[in-house]
Simulated scan of single mutants.
Amino acid sequence: MLSPNSGLYNQFLRYFCVGGISALVDWGLFYALHLMVGLHYIAAASGSFVVSVIVNFFLGREFVFKNQCKFNAKIEALSIVAMNTTGLLFDLLIMSLAIKLAHVHPVAAKIGATGLVFIWNFSIRRWWLYRQTF
């Protein structure tokens, strides 16, 4: 269990704040692209996700993981792209299943998928990229 005094707790709390900012960027842009511009939800979700990943990368690197990557900046950025591409695939799969099988509204599906992908992104960045144990 996470203790409020643990490094993991504090780091998770910071990542939650950074993730919240990134999620607002993702959801706002998804809403604009899908409902206002009329893009298909897959295209809108892909575009909004990419922008939110950029926001998350810079904020997460500075405020959560404090530039403690075990690799150089180029490898770090490529790793983030690979991890978040996997996250995008999870996001799109969860959204598609929710929309097609459960008839969930695309915006609600996007919000639910974001929550699940958030856990993936934090875990893989902490464990693999920044080599910090749980």
Rank of each mutant, 00 (worst) to 15 (best):
F118C: 01
L97V: 13
L39G: 02
G112Y: 08
M95P: 07
A77I: 15
V81W: 06
Y31I: 10
G115I: 09
H40Y: 14
G20T: 07
R126Y: 06
L8S: 08
W127A: 09
M36H: 09
Q11S: 12
I21P: 01
Q132G: 03
Y41V: 03
V50N: 03
V37Y: 12
G112E: 12
N121V: 05
M1D: 12
F65A: 11
K100W: 06
A23Q: 02
A98I: 00
I99W: 04
F122N: 02
V53L: 09
S79G: 12
S6E: 08
M1Q: 08
W128M: 12
L39K: 02
A45Y: 02
I80N: 14
L78W: 08
L78Q: 14
S3F: 07
E76S: 05
F30H: 02
F49S: 01
N10Y: 04
R14G: 04
Q132W: 00
E62W: 09
F63I: 00
S6I: 10
L89V: 15
A113T: 05
T114D: 11
L24E: 00
Y9V: 00
A113M: 03
T86G: 08
G60Q: 07
L89H: 01
S46L: 15
L93H: 04
R14H: 06
R131Y: 05
L92N: 06
G60E: 07
F12W: 11
F118E: 03
L2D: 07
F90I: 13
D91T: 09
A23R: 00
R14Y: 04
L116V: 03
I42S: 05
W120G: 01
A23F: 11
V37D: 10
A82M: 06
G60A: 15
V25K: 07
I119R: 10
K74E: 14
V51C: 11
L24D: 00
V104P: 01
F118L: 14
F12L: 15
K66D: 09
L39Q: 03
E76K: 01
V50R: 03
F16V: 14
L92A: 05
L89T: 15
G7Q: 15
I111C: 07
W127M: 10
G112D: 13
N56I: 02
V117L: 04
Q132I: 04
L39R: 01
G47V: 04
A102Y: 13
R14N: 13
S48R: 01
D91H: 13
D91W: 05
D91Q: 15
S6W: 07
P106L: 02
S46P: 01
V37G: 05
L13N: 10
Y130L: 05
L29P: 04
V37S: 12
N84Q: 11
I21Q: 01
R126C: 08
C69Y: 00
V37A: 11
I94W: 06
L93Q: 03
A108E: 09
Q68E: 15
K70I: 14
I80P: 00
V55I: 13
S96M: 10
N84E: 11
N67E: 12
V18T: 13
I99V: 07
N5S: 12
K70N: 07
F57S: 10
L129K: 00
I75H: 15
A113S: 15
Y31K: 04
A102C: 09
S6N: 09
L35Q: 09
G7T: 12
L24Q: 03
N121L: 08
G60R: 06
G115W: 12
I119G: 14
I54Y: 03
G28I: 06
A32P: 02
T114N: 10
